[in-house]
Simulated scan of single mutants.
Amino acid sequence: MDEVTLLAQAVPDVPPPSAETVARARARIAAREAPAQRPRVRPHWGWTAGAAVATTAVVTAVVMMVSNLAGVPESASPPGPPPAFQQAPRVHKGLDRLAAVRMPRSATKASLRFRPTSTKIAIVIFCEKPGSIFFSSEGGSSAGGICGPDGAPSMLADKAHEPGWLGREHEITFWVFPPDAPVVRGRSSCPARGSCDGKEVLSTPGAADRLVGKLGKRPGAWSVAAYDVPAAHALHDTAGPEEG
């Protein structure tokens, strides 16, 4: 279908142009379209540059959106208390904490100072590694046992029922060792005459100190605290000294 037919269909009431008019019109159209048939780099470059600018704008907008979202804090509940072996809780079984000490490693020792207020005094040790071995000593009295994250009581608190134990300052030294430490439970485990195959009997502070020197600091945080009935006492909460 040529131009004349199209014009006739579009304007049916107007007579179609002559053949000469159509020829001249075709010549003018061909002259205008001739440059467009040659490859043009500039329009293509212009489109590419425009697309790059648009792409950069989109990427910038996305980056700004992500940054804005990252800056909005998530609604989260406040962090809970640290584990007991890192910091002894302030309250334990209805008793207030009088004093506490904590150590970041096992095969170490620390001293706990406190003044008891009643016979309900409780001395509790918390160990990161279940089955850790502890030994405690004050003066000529000592006690040992096994501790874990849930805590274990020291039998030295039972001395609160003895006359003169209440109403004065106490300093109890604690040693904590990993579960696989070479420890003998009781002298009966050793031969009647001879050594204990390189294992220590934790019955004196000297034996505990020897084992500390033999093992060196090992993984396994621990803490120990004295608890008593609520009273107006100064709260002492310290970290044990790091050795070496």
Results as ranks from 00 to 15, higher is better:
H233L: 14
K129I: 00
G80I: 01
R42V: 15
W222D: 05
A70W: 14
P17V: 04
R105Y: 09
M103K: 01
C127R: 01
G140E: 14
K109P: 02
H161D: 09
T5W: 01
T173K: 00
G244T: 09
I123Y: 03
L156K: 04
G186P: 02
A8D: 01
R28F: 14
A232G: 00
V14M: 13
Q9W: 04
G140W: 15
H236N: 09
P178C: 07
A152T: 08
R193H: 08
A181Q: 00
G46A: 15
M1D: 14
S67H: 13
I29Q: 13
R113S: 07
T48V: 14
C127D: 04
D209I: 05
A10I: 07
A208K: 01
E242M: 03
A57Q: 03
G194W: 10
A10L: 07
V62T: 06
P12Q: 09
R210T: 00
R105Q: 05
A8H: 02
F134K: 00
P104I: 10
P17R: 07
P16M: 09
G164A: 08
V91W: 14
P83W: 09
C147P: 06
D158Q: 08
M64Y: 14
K159N: 06
V176C: 08
R187Y: 13
D237G: 00
S188A: 08
E138M: 11
K93S: 01
G186K: 08
A122W: 12
E200L: 07
P153A: 15
L235Q: 13
S203N: 08
R105A: 08
E74H: 10
A61Y: 01
R187F: 13
R28V: 12
G220S: 06
P130A: 09
P116K: 04
V229L: 15
A99K: 02
P163Y: 10
D228I: 00
V53A: 15
F134T: 01
L166F: 05
R38L: 12
G206K: 13
M1N: 12
K217M: 02
R40H: 15
P73S: 02
D197H: 08
D228L: 06
F135R: 02
F135M: 07
S195K: 14
T119K: 14
K159M: 06
R97N: 06
V229E: 13
G139F: 07
K109H: 06
A110N: 07
A76P: 10
G80A: 11
W165V: 05
A54N: 06
A57R: 10
G213F: 12
V53D: 12
G50W: 11
P35Q: 11
C196L: 07
V63P: 11
A110E: 01
G46L: 15
E33T: 10
V201D: 04
A160P: 05
K217S: 06
P149H: 05
S106F: 11
D158R: 02
P73M: 01
R105I: 03
A57Y: 00
E242I: 02
V53P: 09
T56Y: 13
L69E: 13
K129W: 03
V101L: 10
A207N: 08
G220N: 01
F177K: 07
H233K: 11
A221R: 04
P230I: 02
N68D: 10
H170M: 03
A226H: 06
D158T: 05
D2P: 09
